[in-house]
Structure formats: structure tokens, C-alpha cells
Design a binder for these strands. Structure first.
Lengths: 150, 150
DNA sequence: TTCAAAGTTAACGTTGACGTTAGCTTTCTA
DNA sequence: TAGAAAGCTAACGTCAACGTTAACTTTGAA
């Protein structure tokens, strides 16, 4: 049961806060492609596609990765998603065909995920320190403001 | 008592993990300038200069600001530092000359600092959510790995 | 004192991440 | 069923943040 691809490129772009050009650029780089097309050849995105775009933006904006690093991450996730879809289509027993491939992909996903988590933890603690410094600075400034007022 | 400017550009660059070109570029943009020069005209950075470079890198790499945004922040901080230095040089009473200027600068610093703190808090909580998602994903993958092994 | 290493200015080059424009086609809504 | 709005491809443009090169000078250890 293929998920229906109903969003137009402009809708997904608006939802993600980017331009349509950006989505075509992501596609060019192999980051996300629409899972369908209209009869006339216009891109149609599914909910999964849309979610992937949002994830890319999160990795880019919040985490600060470049599109190349992001590609590594989402590529692994996408391969895993595809495998899951396959499993859903052909029967579970029939799917037993490639248990090794699944193990490989899951192992890969775990590795990438773990690396990412470590980086995020590190970044988080650095950010906490940074915020604490800001708070200290804030207190300092306010003392100085009081001092200056007299 | 002016702080001595002893670091060569290469040393500061190494400490900050950037190239010397980058430091000259920052200078070109008005972000940080060495507070001294050798007799022959070579840049000499003080500890304060060095700290400013490190702060710029932190704002850039950790927080994700661009050099223009960073300039706004460090410019305000630097103005305040200069004022403090002035106060240290001319006597505290004599310094009473411009209490209004100090109040303005401190108010400005407080405003910028507060904005920055709010942004950081928001970013921090988004990052926490992101990390929680990663953790959930990790658990999921590990369950799936176990499943696949049987 | 020498001389390799480091620094200087000035200018042009590069790269990632899109923006913009042109010319044409599809979609949708009134 | 018009026609404005949205999409399509292809190609060139832009901008920040440096990298690189050239031609020359200063520094500092041997």
C-alpha cells in the first residue's frame, strides 16, 4: 500500500520555511525526492517526504550540519525506511530472503545514530555552559547598571 | 596599565583552530584587531584579544551566528570593556565625567545579552527535544536489531 | 650574522547553498 | 473552458567566509 503523494512543492516549501528552489536543490543532491508525480510531471510529495524535508531543515538549522553530512544521515534512515516498506509489501516470511541486509542496515543506522547522539550531548553541555556564562554576565551587567545609577 | 600584546598571529590562530587568513579577515570586518604591533609591523595579540577570538569562534560554531550578527554582539561587549579600561586609567571620580554614557552602554549590553539568552534557552530546549528523539530512535533500532537476529 | 620560518599586503579564486531569470507547460478555480 | 497561479528545466548570478598565490619583509634561533 503505497502512501499517497499529495503535496505540491510549494506547500512543502512553505511548511518547511524554504523556497521551492531549495527543495529542487535538495533533490539534485539526492537528499529527498518526491515519491510521486502528477500526470503532467509536477512533483508530488507524501507525508513521509514532507517529514524528511523537515528533518533536513532541523539538522541544518538546529544542529548546524552541512548538506553533505546530512545526506549521510538521511540516506541511512531512508534505506531503512525502504526496507521496512518492502517488508510490509511482500509477506513477512517471503521477506526472510534478506535478513542479513536488514541486520547490516540496522547496524549502520545504530552507528550513525550513536555518533549523532554523542555529538548532540557534547553540544548540549557546551551550550549549557555557554548559557550559564550568559547568565553570569547578565547578573554582572545589572550590578553595574545599579552602580552607575547612583 | 595596558595589557601586553605578546601573541603572534599564528599562535592565536592555532589556539582558535583557524587560519591566519581568518584572523586577518575578522580584523577586516572589524571583529577583532590586535592591540599591538611589533616594531616591524607584525600583529601582536593580547590575552583579551585572544579571548575575543575564541568567543567569536564559539558564537559562530556553537551558536551558529554569522559574522555580521557576531559583530553586533562583540562590538557592544568591546565598547563596555574599553569603558572599564578608561575608568581604570583616569580616577574613579574624574571618570564621573560620563556617567550617562556608561548607563547607555550597560543598558545596551543588557539588552543584547537578554536577547541572546532567550535565543539560547529556546535553542537548548529544541536541542533537548531533538536528543530525546534520537534516544527514542536508538531504542527502536536496538529492538529491531534483536528482532532481526532471531 | 645568517637564513628558514613566520608575517605582511593585495589581489584573485573557491565553495556551499541557494537566488534569479527565461521560456515554456500544467493545474486549478471561477 | 479561460487564464491566473503554480510548476518545470536549464542556466547564470550571488554572497559569505574564507583559501591561495605572489612578491616582499620581519623575526628569532643557531
Amino acid at each position: 500500500m503505497a502512501e499517497e503523494a499529495r503535496y505540491r512543492i510549494g506547500e512543502v516549501a512553505a511548511a518547511a520555511g524554504v523556497s521551492t528552489r531549495t527543495l529542487r536543490y535538495y533533490e539534485e543532491l539526492g537528499l529527498v525526492s518526491p515519491s510521486g508525480y502528477s500526470p503532467g510531471g509536477a512533483r508530488r510529495y507524501s507525508d513521509t517526504d514532507r517529514a524528511r524535508v523537515l528533518r533536513i531543515r532541523e539538522l541544518q538549522e538546529l544542529v548546524g550540519f552541512n548538506l553533505d553530512e546530512i545526506k549521510t544521515i538521511v540516506a541511512a534512515e531512508n534505506r531503512l525506511d525502504e526496507l521496512r516498506t518492502e517488508f510490509a509489501v511482500i509477506s513477512n516470511v517471503e521477506a526472510g530472503r534478506s535478513p542479513q541486509r536488514e541486520q547490516e542496515l540496522v547496524a549502520e543506522a545504530i552507528e550513525i545514530n550513536d555518533r549523532l547522539r554523542e555529538e548532540m550531548k557534547a553540544k548540549l553541555s557546551r551550550l549549557e555552559t555557554f548559557l550559564a556564562d550568559l547568565d553570569a554576565r547578565a547578573a554582572l551587567y545589572r550590578r553595574r547598571a545599579k552602580q552607575a545609577k547612583r
